[in-house]
Design a binder for these strands. Structure first.
Lengths: 219, 219
DNA sequence: TGTACATCAGTGAACGCGCGTTCACTGATGTAC
DNA sequence: TGTACATCAGTGAACGCGCGTTCACTGATGTAC
């Protein structure tokens, strides 16, 4: 899962214990990001939680940024895996477009909700990253986590009245993800009630996509 | 416009030239935010562009955060003003729901597009702010910029098949704003083509809202 | 199996950079008589 | 209208804090014969 993504930037491991250390560092960074947000995530704190010294971090990663990238990539790799699994089971059943959309959306929403605070920190990390190349890369990474949905939904292109089903499905998913992200990023103060709990949000996002695709289901 | 919002936190001005200074500081901070993003916005740089020394900034504002808040509030006050003006002109015409939604969305999109980079910096500022109270406040401020739209759209509640028109209009606007924000926050690399230029985006967001509300217009 | 050596893993105090903030000071504006 | 004084506006060098990063070192693991 995360391994390939991490390999790219983390130093190669030769001993078994360094593999442990790497895992502990990633887990610790996730924890800190989720609890203290991006601003509160410092190298000393990550090291402390992993039960390591600061220097050990720099033996595994060239710098703090590389560590956070590894966390980012690992997270979205896992999220993509879950989405794919959920869609696979759907792919072979005889479900129609509406069912497919609702299931896709629901998987996304529940996944996001479960790691709400971590996701929030990762999104702000990507959005505020000084390197535009990484921002684009990060966008691609998170988009890839959803990529599986398009072709599966497009099997039902004949149910989509919209004149350009491919573009329509892409945009519908984009809108759903964007709305979900906004709900994750915002504090719950001023959200519409439908965005406050995952069940309601799933239902509304499902209707949003379907309505846009031209399938109004009178909800 | 900005004046009331700024008064809250900026020191009261007694001389005319300090009023100038205040304006120059706000304008300069906007510029820097738009050009260098949140991370690149430092007090020395803001002062330099305003043709002032660092100390002068601290005569007007208790700290950097207060200055950025003032910029944030001023921006959304202006945006709200524009939206209201655009809707007012609409309010008295005989336009229907579809026209109202499309006009509302289009105003939002064009406003956001014009100040794309500044808006991006302000959103990341709000999202990453350490104080949760301010994050909620900021959300309310930006929501207020749209608040005018709801009652005007609800004049056409009889055209909305959705069972709860109030909630539906709120959620539709939330989804549209969220999608717009995502388009503003992301680098243009991996956006759907419909999110790349304001005209196309307006059209799609209009359809998105209308479809959700139960008015599919076969686009 | 044991020993010697090389390499890897991890420590933690110290460094340095950048940036927000301060403060003693000069100059400008307003006010009272 | 002019003068003396008080307050406000602005300067810019210096400070300090926090955090990312380094580095000389100790200890652990693997390898060759």
């Amino acid at each position: 899962m995360a391994i390939t993504a991490v390999k790219v930037r983390a130093r190669p491991t030769t001993q078994a214990r360094s593999r442990d250390t790497l895992d502990r560092l990633l887990a610790s960074a996730e924890e800190v990001l989720g609890e203290r947000g991006l601003e509160g995530t410092t190298v000393p704190e990550i090291a402390r939680r992993a039960g390591l010294s600061v220097g050990a971090v720099y033996r595994r990663f060239p710098d703090k940024d590389a560590l956070l990238r590894a966390v980012y990539e690992a997270y979205f790799a896992r999220a993509g895996e879950l989405n794919r699994a959920s869609l696979l089971s759907l792919g072979w059943s005889g479900a129609g477009l509406a069912e497919g959309v609702r299931r896709t959306v629901s998987t996304m929403v529940w996944g996001a909700w479960e790691h709400r605070l971590l996701l929030r920190a990762l999104l702000t990390y990507a959005y505020t990253h000084p390197d535009p190349a990484f921002r684009r890369e990060a966008e691609a990474t998170s988009a890839a986590a959803l990529a599986g949905a398009e072709p599966i939904l497009l099997r039902h292109r004949d149910e989509i009245p919209h004149t350009d089903p491919e573009a329509a499905v892409r945009f519908a998913l984009f809108a759903a993800v964007s709305t979900l992200r906004a709900a994750v990023l915002a504090d719950p103060g001023d959200l519409p009630p439908a965005a406050l709990d995952p069940d309601a949000l799933s239902a509304q996002l499902g209707s949003l996509c379907l309505g846009y695709l031209g399938v109004y289901d009178g909800q």
